[in-house]
């Protein structure tokens, strides 16, 4: 078995430094395995979040050799044999200890977004939506809240505009609500005014780091920006809305229940 060097950032808000740990690496191992090996040996108190170890919960987000990634889905074999594996905490959030950061800000953003609010259910109790209409919503709901997109977004990471922009993760949350066939709330004014859609200048860094391969920029943020533009800056669309209201906009098309009774 090969030996690998795990170079882990150790410290807290007051400061810290990188420490090297030499650990055994078996074939097929991921970076999280190296962290666990270090914990079981030379660094028992190395702080690191993790849960599922299968890319499904989004807990073990960190920066690995300079890139925001999930430690459980990053294979050690992807790095050259003599290259140290460098792990450090997400840069966009305050450090708690070692590889663990304070991500509570993200949870506060979710709380600010008006929740899903469907219209009344049909008489038989079964809402109806076609699969094609929910496909695009389901893409956004694949999000595992690893916050790697939040970490890489330069509005948050470099400019610290946390008070002005909710970040890519919550832009897709907003898109999933906006495109949900059953939802009745109009969040478009808030997308511009409260959630800061104008801050994103479409560099697609968030899309690149998404472990779920969600088309964050193209499928969520750009359509939301277009909705904002047509709402506030397109005179023809504004005139149509004056007559028909905002509810008739695309993306709000629940299927009607069939007239015949379901057997």
């Amino acid at each position: 078995m090969a030996e690998r060097v795990l170079r882990a950032w150790r410290g807290d808000r007051s400061g810290g430094r990188f420490e090297d740990y030499t650990v055994e690496a078996d074939p097929g191992m991921v970076v999280l395995d190296l962290v666990h090996r270090a914990q079981a040996g030379p660094a028992p108190d190395l702080a690191c979040r993790w849960n599922c170890k299968a890319g499904k919960c989004g807990s073990c987000s960190m920066e690995i050799n300079g890139r925001p990634r999930l430690a459980c889905m990053t294979r050690v074999g992807d790095f050259a044999p003599d290259e140290p594996i460098v792990v450090q905490p997400l840069k966009a959030f305050p450090i708690i200890r070692d590889l663990v950061t304070d991500v509570r800000w993200n949870y506060q953003q979710n709380k600010r977004i008006a929740p899903f609010t469907p219209g009344p259910a049909p008489a038989d109790g079964n809402y109806r939506m076609s699969q094609t209409d929910v496909d695009r919503v389901q893409e956004f709901r694949k999000c595992i809240e690893c916050f790697l997109c939040q970490d890489t977004c330069h509005v948050i990471r470099d400019h610290d505009k946390k008070a002005d922009f909710v970040g890519p993760r919550f832009m897709i949350r907003l898109a999933s609500l906006d495109m949900h066939p059953l939802d009745t709330v109009d969040r478009i004014p808030a997308v511009r005014d409260s959630y800061g859609s104008g801050y994103c200048n479409i560099t697609r860094c968030c899309t690149e780091v998404c472990p779920e391969h969600i088309g964050i920029t193209d499928n969520a943020i750009i359509p939301l920006k277009e909705r904002v533009v047509s709402r506030f800056y397109d005179p023809i669309a504004m005139a149509i809305r004056a007559f028909f209201g905002t509810k008739s906009e695309p993306g709000k098309r629940p299927m009607a229940a069939p007239q015949t009774k379901v057997p």
């Binding site: 929740p115 899903f116 469907p118 259910a121 809402y127 109806r128 939506m129 076609s130 699969q131 929910v134 919503v137 389901q138 709901r141 999933s176 609500l177 949900h180 299927m255 069939p258």
Partner: peptide, 12 residues
């Protein structure tokens, strides 16, 4: 009704 988006049957 709380927002879960399950896969659909042909009739929705």
């Amino acid at each position: 009704a709380w927002g879960a988006v399950f896969d659909r049957t042909a009739d929705g």
